[in-house]
Design a protein around this nucleic acid. Structure first.
Lengths: 339, 339
DNA sequence: TTGAAAGCGCTAACAA
DNA sequence: TTGTTAGCGCTTTCAA
């Protein structure tokens, strides 16, 4: 029924050679006569030989496959990271196995196991929102399986990681608002156990402090899931203040857009009455009216760098090096929403 | 250095059993005494035994891995499809290997080969924009490797596929515009060699015809890549007409938003002066002002259905059934942009 | 119910 | 330069 695919031993038989010879000829080994190499390649082509990676992987103990665990794949950020990651991996001859944790700790733990069973040579991961510990990675670490985190990492864990300098992003965007003459700058922050949101908040505080503008607790709104609704709710809360803000830095673009819509409903003009900035450079951030000032996180670059780091660790597998951390510089995109 | 992971034979040795017995015990075989099953599982747990899928795959000739080829992974549609696909695959105990063709035919051909070498049990694919033939899938088909296409398919090819009823989508959205009293309805169409754009255009024509509204050639604008710019250019072209349209159905949301922006620049009100509808339900389509009427394509469902179909084909691998085509019903989302 | 043995397709050490 | 052989870890007959 199914035409049996040609194997190395088929070629060997046909050519009356040893399988090892054929294997060497195919893998471009040096100690092989030009004549046999030719014959082997020719027959391989003719039989449409396709190497069986599974067998090679089993034998070599390397699958040439990388695992990637993402909280989700819809959504701009992770999709772009994945794009960068896959490109670099493929270039290096590695396949990529994708798992989604669906923002769930338990699911994430299962993903790790799945990927280990699949014998991936390394794992790239961004943590689920409700992951607070490192337990489910310990097994992988014990096995000396290369592990790289990106974006959402666990503070204090001894692992390699690629992140964008979130604090700098928060700092630059706040400074930009200050430079526009704003003084009552509110902040929409995300869950503070996640490094990214903590750092963005820290950047905000740093900029204020440097400018000698006191931090007003009442202007800081911590959101749950950085949704549109969070933004609208935040606006309601802020407008109820005796002295509302004249600018808002939101740690996420969705929340910023939610805020934008709410502000419009309250007949407040952006940026004249309130300047508004987001974070993340989502697709839609350049489609709102006014267009949203935001921070670009170098998503593709992040994915690419992370995979490169992972590949490096796989190559140097012998000596488990000390964890490395790559910090990318975020890019401030000033647009109409901040005047 | 790396702690060697426990294998079946390790367990066998320790327990003085045959590897075959241990294998059966672990895989829940029936003909096994309860006592040994217990002993085996206990030791497996203790040694933290993790099955080596590679070895099992090699032996069984099934890798429990599916390949997915997408034109790209950024962008709402494919990301959501992937989400649905991955979820269903995982549920069924399959891993997913992701490849991006980057909208390039040659790259796509290479992806097919890569996945075949990786011994995937089936491939799910949506065609690159510049793919016009089926050659690079022939090899897979000859090998009887289950193949499912989705969304972007090749007309006339004998393969299983999951698509959304694009014609119905175009039809419903045009009927909706007609119901709003619009009569000069323009259309932004995409590359007509792609089934999706051809069908949306066909739905448009069908609705006009049924309503007895003649098709005006001058109101049909064919775009290259359905970008924002295409939308803006389209508007310029349409507004130069002696009699501009009172409604526009764009085959894509991006183009629709480009049109929206251009219309605003020309001080035309949406929907009062021109009603505007897109296609695809991109995230941003509900964030524009006014919100965009559009068509939801059931992305996640499409991915899930496609994988289910693929799994079915893998199960029934013995008798290669006739190709099946699943057609999902699109959902019209009427929002403010059409009044 | 358990065991022995073969083999999936490939690579790599050792021998010739 | 080529061949022989062992074995990666697992499943699956066949035999006991």
């Amino acid at each position: 029924m199914t035409p049996k695919r040609a194997s190395i031993s088929d070629i060997a038989k046909e050519l009356k050679l040893a399988v090892s010879t054929v294997s060497r000829a195919l893998s471009g080994h040096s100690r092989i006569s030009e004549a046999t190499r030719q014959r082997v390649w020719q027959l391989a082509e003719q039989l449409d030989y396709q190497p069986n990676h599974l067998a090679a992987a089993l034998r070599k103990g390397r699958s040439n496959t990388l695992g990637v665990i993402l909280p989700n794949i819809d959504g701009h950020f992770f999709a772009l990271v994945m794009k960068g990651a896959e490109a670099v991996a493929n270039q290096a001859g590695f396949n990529v196995m994708l798992c989604q944790s669906n923002e769930d700790h338990a699911h994430e733990a299962k993903n790790v196991e799945t990927l280990m069973n699949a014998q991936v040579d390394g794992i790239l991961v961004s943590l689920a929102r409700n992951t607070h510990d490192f337990k489910h990675f310990e097994k992988a670490k014990q096995r000396n399986l290369p592990l790289v985190f990106f974006d959402r990492i666990l503070d204090g864990s001894e692992v390699s990681a690629v992140v964008v300098d979130d604090q700098r992003g928060g700092y630059e965007i706040t400074r930009h608002l200050l430079a526009q003459g704003r003084r009552r700058i509110a902040h929409f922050g995300g869950p503070q156990h996640l490094n990214i949101y903590k750092d963005r908040y820290a950047g905000y505080r740093q900029a204020l402090e440097e400018a000698g503008v006191p931090l007003e607790e009442e202007l800081v709104v911590l959101c749950h899931d950085m949704s549109l609704d969070d933004g609208a709710a935040g606006i309601r809360q802020l407008l109820a203040l005796p002295q509302p803000p004249d600018a808002i830095f939101s740690s996420g673009d969705f929340t910023a857009v939610g805020a934008l819509q709410a502000l419009k409903e309250h007949r407040l003009r952006v940026p004249q009455d309130v300047a508004l900035a987001g974070f993340g450079n989502e697709t839609f951030s350049s489609l709102t009216e006014p267009k949203l000032t935001t921070i670009d996180q170098r998503c593709e670059e992040m994915g690419g760098s992370a995979i490169r780091l992972l590949l490096e660790m796989i190559q140097n597998h012998a000596q488990p090096s000390t964890p490395r951390k790559i910090v990318l510089r975020p890019e401030l995109l000033t647009r109409a929403s901040t005047g």
